[in-house]
Amino acid sequence: MTEIGEKKELPDVFIDPIDMSELDRGFRKEIQSMPNGEELSACFACSTCTSACPIANIWEIKPHQLIRMIILGIREKVLSSKEIWLCLTCFECQERCPQGVRVTDIFFDCKNLATEEGMIPASIVALGKELIEKGQLYTVTADWEREDLDLEPDVPGLSTDAVKRVLGSTRTGRLVKGGR
């Protein structure tokens, strides 16, 4: 941190200029065509979403900046950012946006696009693997606890086959099989 009184050399430019040729103009439309993405263009960059976010202080790229980058078409940087995967999905940003931009939902859309391009944390793929192989995320390990409470020993009504069947034919199945 800069000490008080210490002279600081100012850089020539504060922000690296955007290289227009690297922008993906279709990115905005791509997100807008995804579920809950329509309101994206209504963003007027007030940064209320960032103020509402409990962890934006530790993010290099803040929520309002991610939204602005989507609008401008800085696709690669958004989809490869670690921030979209650190999002708590707490919806505080979305709830406070005065323009009705569905910020958290849009970050979900970004994670889907990132996944499609293979940019997904291994720990999330591992959860997909659980779903494909076991058909559930949690399994009963202490059935005596259930029996003590007069509950049936296994998870009631759960069809593990249904999960395996449905997700086996969607992106989750492809991810787990092909590593992508």
Binding site: P35, V125, T160, L167
Partner: peptide, 20 residues
């Protein structure tokens, strides 16, 4: 209890596979 239903997948499934 509903019978023959699937796990909801959690928000992590939503993140990787919205359609699924």
């Amino acid at each position: 209890y509903l019978e023959d239903v699937a796990c909801c997948g959690s928000p992590n499934l939503r993140a990787m596979d919205y359609w699924g």
